[in-house]
């Protein structure tokens, strides 16, 4: 067995660490644009889903989005867009942010031109429990929002509430959807998040 001096060990480890960090840093910087493009594409894809477009191939997402949507105010990256929906009418895309059980949840809501009716939603999450909170991304949950109203019978803003079955109280059918059973905290997160839906 060869003997190694302490100096050798220190130099060895430092050189190794230095080499590794330099290589990784350059790879990370080199792949940055690619990664950012992925994030943008995913955002567009989510908005298109909320607007009712189901099968857009991955390659066309960006060009198709830029064709039918434009930022409402200012430039990209924007939080609010005007978009031509799958049904031919135009709608307003609003971004909402909230907090689930384990981490952030967010979504895009497409409103009708007058800002009273939901035309579609799509939610996303970072780390909700699969099979429970993660169900907010399922079509079954997001389809329930289509056609719901943001204002109640008296014309006051109530947004669309996410409420457990059996606890509806006097909230109209048009102003609520059913919560996901077993995912109380995530559902409450969506409920709170939806209160922020408003056309600027």
């Amino acid at each position: 067995m060869r003997k190694f001096s302490n100096t050798y060990i220190y130099v060895y480890v430092s050189a190794l660490v230095l080499l590794i960090s330099v290589v990784l840093a350059s790879v990370s910087i080199g792949l940055r644009p690619k990664r950012d493009a992925n994030v943008t594409r995913e955002k567009y894809q989510q908005i298109l889903k909320a607007a009712g477009y189901k099968d857009i191939s991955k390659k066309n997402v960006v060009s198709f989005f830029q064709e039918i949507a434009e930022p409402e105010m200012g430039n990209e990256p924007s939080e609010q867009y005007r978009i031509r929906c799958a049904d031919g009418n135009s709608g307003i895309v609003v971004r909402v942010n909230g907090k689930g059980l384990w981490g952030p949840i967010w979504g895009y809501v497409v409103l009708s031109e007058d800002g009273t009716t939901i035309k579609g939603v799509s939610f996303a999450h970072k780390s909700e429990t699969p099979g429970l909170g993660a169900k907010i991304t399922d079509d079954e949950f997001s389809n329930a929002f289509i056609g719901k109203k943001l204002y109640n019978q008296n014309g006051a803003f109530t947004s669309v509430r996410v409420i457990k079955k059996g606890q509806e109280g006097d909230i109209r059918e048009e102003n609520r959807v059913d919560a996901i059973s077993g995912a109380t905290i995530t559902s409450r997160g969506v409920d709170e998040m939806m209160r922020g839906v408003k056309r600027d």
Binding site: V17, V23, L24, V27, L31, V39, E42
Partner: peptide
Amino acid sequence: LLIVSFWVVLVDLLLQAYFY
């Protein structure tokens, strides 16, 4: 550990770029 984590981070970065 250093060598393994080097390759893991590399794989992770590549996945994020090409298989998001």
